[in-house]
Structure formats: C-alpha cells, structure tokens
Amino acid sequence: MSRSSKAVVSFIVGAAVGVAVGYFLNSDKKDELVDKLKYQADKLKEKFRAKKQQYEDAIENELT
C-alpha cells in the first residue's frame, strides 16, 4: 500500500471514530457510559493498590 493510500485510510478511520464518539457523547447513553468507565477505572485502581501492597509486604518480609 502506498503512503497516500495509507493516509486516506487513516483519515477515514479517524473520521469514523470521531463521528462515533461524537454521536455517543450526544446520546442519552452518555451518562451510563461515563458511570461504567468510572466504575471500571475504580476497580482497576483498587487491583493495582492491592498488588502494590502485596509487593511491598513481600519486599519488607524479605528484608527482615
């Protein structure tokens, strides 16, 4: 594929993603999506905190 055709495909994909995001953010489901994303982010943060604590405890046990 040539450079110009890659650029055209990239532009089309970017435009499609932009339209989809714009449509979704203006729809009634926006609040539901934001709540789901916040919930998933909080779960992920809690998993990272638990792993961090686990590693800190393991390191502390090894040093003592």
Results as ranks from 00 to 15, higher is better:
Asp42Val: 14
Gln40Asp: 08
Leu25Arg: 03
Ala15Asn: 04
Ile12Asn: 08
Val34Leu: 15
Gly22Asp: 03
Asp31Cys: 06
Lys29Asn: 09
Gly14Leu: 05
Glu62Leu: 11
Val8Pro: 01
Glu46Met: 04
Ala16Asn: 04
Arg49Gln: 09
Glu60His: 03
Leu33His: 02
Ser2Arg: 03
Met1Leu: 14
Glu56Ile: 10
Asp31Ile: 12
Tyr23Lys: 10
Arg3Glu: 13
Lys38Asp: 14
Asp35Pro: 11
Lys36Arg: 14
Val8Gly: 02
Val13Pro: 01
Val34Gln: 08
Ala58Leu: 15
Val8Lys: 14
Val19Pro: 02
Val13Glu: 09
Gly18Ala: 00
Ser4Thr: 13
Gly18Asn: 00
Glu32Ala: 06
Ala41Trp: 00
Leu33Gln: 07
Val17Gln: 01
Glu46Thr: 08
Arg49Tyr: 09
Ala50Val: 10
Leu37Val: 03
Glu32Trp: 10
Lys30Val: 12
Thr64Val: 10
Ser10Pro: 02
Phe24Gly: 04
Asp57Gly: 05
Ala41Thr: 15
Lys30Cys: 09
Val13Met: 09
Val19Ile: 13
Asp42Asn: 09
Val17Tyr: 02
Gly14Arg: 11
Val13Trp: 04
Lys29His: 07
Ile12Phe: 14
Ser27Lys: 08
Met1Thr: 14
Met1Glu: 14
Arg3Tyr: 02
Glu60Asp: 14
Met1Trp: 12
Lys38Cys: 09
Glu56Met: 11
Ala16Ser: 04
Lys51Pro: 03
Arg49Met: 11
Asp28Met: 04
Lys29Pro: 01
Lys45Pro: 05
Ala50Tyr: 02
Ala7Leu: 12
Asp31Leu: 10
Val21Gly: 00
Lys6Leu: 13
Leu44Pro: 04
Gly14Gln: 07
Met1Arg: 15
Lys36Ala: 10
Val13His: 02
Ala15Glu: 05
Ala16Arg: 01
Lys43Asp: 12
Leu33Trp: 06
Met1Val: 15
Ser4Trp: 02
Ile12Lys: 12
Asp28Val: 04
Ile12Met: 15
Glu46Gly: 04
Lys52Ala: 13
Asn61Lys: 14
Lys36Asp: 01
Val13Arg: 11
Leu63Asn: 04
Val21Asp: 01
Leu44Gln: 11
Glu62Cys: 02
Phe24Ala: 13
Asn26Thr: 13
Gly22Ala: 01
Ile59Trp: 04
Val13Ala: 12
Glu60Tyr: 03
Ser5Arg: 15
Val21Glu: 01
Phe11Met: 10
Phe11Val: 06
Ala20Gly: 01
Ala58Ile: 06
Glu56Trp: 09
